[in-house]
Amino acid sequence: MNETVSFGYRDVDADQKTGMVKGVFSSVAGKYDLMNDAMSAGAHRLWKDQFVRRVKPQMGEAILDMAGGTGDIAFRLHDRGAQVTVADINPEMLAVGMARAEKKALTGLVWSEQNAETLDFPDRQFDAYTIAFGIRNVTHIDRALAEAHRVLRFGGRFYCLEFSTTLWPGFADIYDAYSHHLVPKIGKLLANDADSYRYLVESIRRFPDMPTFEGMIRAAGFTQTKVEPILGGLVAIHSGWKA
């Protein structure tokens, strides 16, 4: 029997998911940043600022920003002097990021089409690895984590910003109702694509909870793992070190 994995609330053949996810982000690339603002009322900008503060990028250090397509995290890292490689499996998302960088007159960023599960980079190349709102979309999360560990130097830092499950009573019910009923409608209105945004909401529900995902990070070889919940765990910053 073929291996199956989640694609939103559906289970699909593992060898099909990567192409299906690429299709989603090809569809939404042009409106991705607009939709992030609409869905989070702009809060995603604050979450990303907080995330980069936790990364503490240093002048001249090499950072791989995986699933970094439109450049939101990379630009913040670059502003602090890091040498950033922006990697994404989706060329349309990378194209949006490169166009944004050109408008901002940002130079020195490296853009690379990459699958998080099979990176082309050599061992121990980067000082830090970041991934924001991307790891829940990979087919095999454990393989992506193993690759993150492989390409980091000893003492390198892993940071992941991802949606999770809020533990605040009441707020969870409100957010569930909002995300399931309103987000696809917003996607239809602003991007003419309700289905892609329905998948993005469903993918959050299928993602492991905070303790489970922290355990997966440890299993990949990282030490000193930590979880920082935001809004009770609606969003979480996960981190670990390569000893």
Results as ranks from 00 to 15, higher is better:
residue 13 D to H: 11
residue 217 I to G: 09
residue 225 T to I: 12
residue 1 M to H: 05
residue 189 L to A: 15
residue 35 M to Q: 11
residue 182 L to T: 12
residue 80 R to S: 07
residue 169 P to I: 09
residue 137 N to K: 12
residue 62 A to D: 15
residue 69 G to N: 00
residue 195 D to C: 08
residue 138 V to S: 09
residue 184 P to W: 00
residue 34 L to E: 13
residue 108 G to F: 05
residue 67 A to S: 05
residue 29 A to G: 04
residue 54 R to E: 07
residue 102 E to P: 04
residue 80 R to I: 09
residue 100 R to I: 05
residue 57 P to K: 06
residue 15 D to W: 07
residue 119 L to W: 02
residue 60 G to P: 05
residue 206 R to N: 08
residue 144 A to N: 13
residue 93 M to C: 01
residue 5 V to Q: 01
residue 110 V to Q: 07
residue 152 L to F: 08
residue 98 M to H: 01
residue 183 V to I: 14
residue 166 T to H: 03
residue 157 R to H: 14
residue 197 Y to I: 09
residue 171 F to M: 15
residue 218 R to T: 11
residue 186 I to D: 06
residue 223 T to S: 15
residue 55 V to I: 14
residue 70 T to M: 09
residue 221 G to C: 12
residue 130 T to D: 03
residue 201 V to C: 06
residue 171 F to E: 14
residue 60 G to A: 06
residue 188 K to R: 15
residue 240 G to W: 07
residue 99 A to K: 13
residue 54 R to Q: 08
residue 218 R to E: 11
residue 113 E to Q: 12
residue 239 S to P: 05
residue 129 Y to I: 02
residue 58 Q to G: 02
residue 39 M to A: 11
residue 169 P to L: 09
residue 177 A to Q: 12
residue 208 P to L: 15
residue 7 F to L: 06
residue 25 F to P: 00
residue 45 R to D: 04
residue 201 V to S: 05
residue 190 L to I: 01
residue 166 T to M: 02
residue 101 A to N: 00
residue 145 L to D: 11
residue 145 L to I: 07
residue 150 R to V: 05
residue 183 V to R: 02
residue 65 D to N: 03
residue 218 R to Q: 13
residue 110 V to S: 06
residue 140 H to W: 04
residue 198 R to S: 15
residue 239 S to N: 07
residue 167 L to G: 06
residue 235 V to R: 12
residue 183 V to C: 07
residue 149 H to T: 08
residue 84 V to K: 04
residue 3 E to G: 13
residue 241 W to R: 10
residue 233 G to P: 00
residue 153 R to H: 09
residue 19 G to W: 15
residue 102 E to S: 13
residue 72 D to H: 11
residue 184 P to F: 01
residue 66 M to L: 14
residue 193 D to E: 03
residue 22 K to M: 10
residue 86 V to S: 02
residue 243 A to Q: 13
residue 69 G to L: 04
residue 82 A to S: 06
residue 36 N to T: 04
residue 194 A to F: 03
residue 180 H to N: 14
residue 150 R to P: 10
residue 161 L to S: 12
residue 216 M to N: 14
residue 189 L to Y: 15
residue 200 L to W: 02
residue 36 N to W: 04
residue 73 I to W: 03
residue 215 G to M: 11
residue 2 N to R: 05
residue 27 S to K: 10
residue 76 R to E: 07
residue 50 Q to G: 07
residue 67 A to H: 01
residue 132 A to L: 07
residue 67 A to E: 03
residue 73 I to E: 00
residue 42 G to T: 02
residue 147 E to Q: 11
residue 147 E to T: 02
residue 22 K to P: 01
residue 143 R to F: 10
residue 207 F to V: 11
residue 83 Q to Y: 14
residue 75 F to K: 01
residue 221 G to K: 08
residue 152 L to H: 13
residue 1 M to V: 08
residue 188 K to W: 14
residue 8 G to Q: 05
residue 243 A to L: 13
residue 217 I to L: 12
residue 181 H to E: 13
residue 139 T to P: 06
residue 239 S to V: 04
residue 82 A to N: 04
residue 178 Y to G: 05
residue 222 F to C: 13
residue 140 H to L: 05
residue 128 A to R: 04
residue 118 T to R: 08
residue 221 G to L: 11
residue 207 F to K: 08
residue 106 L to G: 04
residue 97 G to H: 00
residue 100 R to E: 00
residue 39 M to Y: 07
residue 42 G to F: 02
